[in-house]
Every structure is written in structure tokens, then in C-alpha cells.
Design a protein around this nucleic acid. Structure first.
Lengths: 206, 206
DNA sequence: ACCACAGTGGACCTGCCAGTCCAGAAAACT
DNA sequence: AGTTTTCTGGACTGGCAGGTCCACTGTGGT
């Protein structure tokens, strides 16, 4: 990560490039974006792009990925950080579904991952996002247990991991099939599990 | 889909190209594969590639995607088509986890999707795979209900959809983080739900 | 034997796209 | 004001990769 000296104007331009690229990534013809596309969209020049992102395409895309990763969690606020009641969980669930329903088949981070391929930094951005996300859910589950609304037999780590995987999969299926029902199905089933598990009597076993 | 006349030798070569490409896709440096890579790996020439795949890269990759999609379901047999006991479900679960644990971070179909981008055919291959997969699981759940091992209150459509989403997500998280625990968590949680839901007494509601 | 057509090899072409370079405008600092 | 640094524009390059072409070699049919 090379540090570049920036004035206020410079910072603004840099941000314009990132957000312009991100906006384009949200569009339909996002696969195979070129630096020239971004240059045209953001009204900049090659010189500027390489001035602000000395590592070129990879550096720029990484910055965009970080920007988008931030949005993912922001879009779930304020629900995500206050999962202390069933109503809150429902609102959170709805906000997730609404966000991805609106996003539809296009998935900025997905495209970015495809574009960045196997660069080390890209996977790190996703890993960080997922682990933050998971820990918020984990905290929510524990809070519900503390207040007695969820039974102690629920494993918060396992369920939060399951939720993360479920959401990721729901979104990916949405990308392939255009249907949000998978995302809803997995979320509702897991939340149903959270509601019922550990409260009923001894489980029946086969 | 242009039909090309093929002799036995021709068919063998065509297949060699597909399987060679598929093998390479399973490797680590699979992102950004070029036709020259495939040419080198399979010991063929540009002429042959375009002879057997007149639509070029896209046609070839589509054929590889179909080939790989077939493997996905095959690898789960014979368990997938006989989900009539808890033992069978467990074996299926284990085969899925084992398959993706072995696959690790590399995911041929994932790379293919990134490479093919937004071509209509690619999404169709995935859609078809997912819907076949889902209908097998659906059948399995219904079978368990018919034999009284699963309660009638379980919605087979919703749970099979949830399983599909969960697996997809588990695999994707595996690609990003290298950890299979997410896949295991979501599978186990959903199967746990299948086991317990609808057998216990009336659910407690908040 | 022949002929038509499938199979094979590889040289070649062409467009694209990341990345370079430099010159000039604008700002910041003294 | 002067100078140093940042900001901006755009022409240019170099290589890569998808795709074309054509000559040559097998192979199967009659």
C-alpha cells in the first residue's frame, strides 16, 4: 500500500473514481469492466487513475471492494447491531431481503471477486466482511440467550456461521436464477430454528 | 448450437479438450485461463479447438461447465437419490462435506461463472443444476414424511430451497476463507431442523 | 485406387486494454 | 513572487489473447 500525498481536491477525485466505479459495478454490463470504462464514467483520465491508484487496476478494484464491503453492513443498520428482540430480528431479516431483492442479479462484490480473481487482498476483504458480520450475529444470539428468549442449547457460533453461509448462498442463487425465494427460505428456516430450538422439550431422535 | 460431424477419433479429442480444461480449472491458477493454456495442457492446436468448438471460448467453457455440473450431482450418488432414512441423510451430508473439503478453495464452476460472466447459457447451466439438485432433496424430504420420520409441518419446498442456498453459501465461504466449518454449520443446523421440527409439541412463540 | 471430408498444426492477424510518459494547469507552501 | 508539489489530460506503446486461414495429414467409404 503506497501512500500518496493528497490535497482536499485530490481526495475528492479519488473518491469520485471509487464511487463511480462502484456505481457502474451495480449495473448489468459490469463484467469485464475496463479502466477506460471507469475513466469515461468518472470523467477522469488515465493519468489520474494511475496517480491515485499506483497499483493500477488491482489497487483500484481493491479500494472499490472495501468501499462496497462497508456498504453491505451499513445497509443492515441499525438493525444488525441491536438484535435484542424478535421484532429486531424480523426487521433485520427484512432489511437483508429487501437489499438483495433491490440488487437483483447484479452483485458488485461478486463481480469484483471474479475480476480480482485470486489476488490475496480480495479474499481478505471478503473474509473480514464475513467475520464482522458473523460476530454481530453471534452477539445478537447471545443477547437473546441472556434475556431468556432463546434456549441455552443453541450454539451461537454454529448458528451465526450457518446464517452467514445461508445468506451468501441465497444471494448467489439469486444471481444465477433471479429468484429471492432461496434467500428467504434459508433465512426463515434458520430463524425458525433459532426460535424453536432449545425451548421445546427433549428432542425426538430416530 | 452448431452440430459438427465427428468420427470416433474426433469425439475422443473433443472430450480430451473438455476434460483437460476441467482438470486445469480444478487447479489453483485457474483464473484467467487462456485458450493457449488449454491448447498446451491438452496437447492440441488452435485449429482443433475451433474445429470442435466453433463458438470459441464461450462454447468450450459452456461445454466444460456442463461437464462439471454433471459431476457435482454424480459425486453425491448414490446417497442423493435414496434419502429415505436418517442414516442416508447423514451419508449424503458427509459426502457433500467431503467433496468440498477435498476441492478446497478452487471451484471449477465458480471460476467458469466468473469467466463466462453474463452469457445467457452459463446461468442456465447453473439454474438447471440447482433445480435438479433441489428436486432430489425435495423428494427425499417427502419420502421421510411419508414414512413418518419427519413431521407434516415441515415444508419440503422451503427446506430443500434452504438446503440448496446453504450449500452454495457454505461452498462460497469456503472459497473465500478456506474454512469448511460454515458449510458444516449450515448443513447440520438445517438437518437438525429437519429432525426436530414438526415432531415436538406446539411451538413456543414470543 | 481414389476422393471427399474429418482431423491436425501452427503461422498470422487484429483489436483491445493495462500501463507509461510527459507536458501543462492548478494549488500549496515560504 | 517564486518554487515545489500535486493534479490533470491524453497520446502512445507493448503485449497478450481470441480468432482466422490455409496447408497438410489421416481415415473411411466405394
Amino acid at each position: 500500500m503506497v501512500v500518496v500525498k493528497l490535497t482536499a481536491k485530490g481526495r475528492a477525485t479519488r473518491q469520485r473514481i471509487i464511487e463511480g466505479a462502484a456505481a457502474h459495478l451495480r449495473g448489468d454490463d459490469a463484467v469485464g469492466v475496463t479502466l477506460d470504462d471507469i475513466r469515461a464514467i468518472t470523467g477522469t483520465s488515465k493519468g489520474q487513475i494511475f496517480h491515485y491508484f499506483p497499483d493500477g487496476k488491482e489497487g483500484l478494484f481493491l479500494a472499490v471492494a472495501q468501499f462496497e464491503a462497508g456498504r453491505v453492513l451499513d445497509d443492515q443498520q441499525p438493525h444488525l447491531s441491536a438484535l435484542t428482540s424478535w421484532a429486531a430480528w424480523d426487521r433485520w431479516r427484512d432489511s437483508v431481503v429487501a437489499r438483495y431483492r433491490a440488487q437483483g442479479r447484479s452483485c458488485p462484490l461478486g463481480v469484483l471477486m471474479g475480476e480480482l480473481g485470486s489476488t490475496p487482498g480480495a479474499q481478505e476483504v471478503i473474509s473480514t466482511l464475513l467475520s464482522q458480520w458473523e460476530s454481530e450475529l453471534h452477539r445478537g444470539i447471545v443477547a437473546m440467550q441472556d434475556s431468556g428468549q432463546v434456549g441455552a442449547s443453541v450454539d451461537p457460533a454454529r448458528l451465526s456461521a450457518a446464517l452467514i453461509a445461508g445468506i451468501q448462498g441465497g444471494v448467489q442463487v439469486l444471481r444465477s436464477t433471479g429468484s429471492v425465494t432461496y434467500l428467504e427460505a434459508v433465512l426463515d428456516t434458520l430463524l425458525d430454528h433459532l426460535r424453536t430450538s432449545g425451548l421445546a422439550g427433549p428432542k425426538l431422535r430416530s
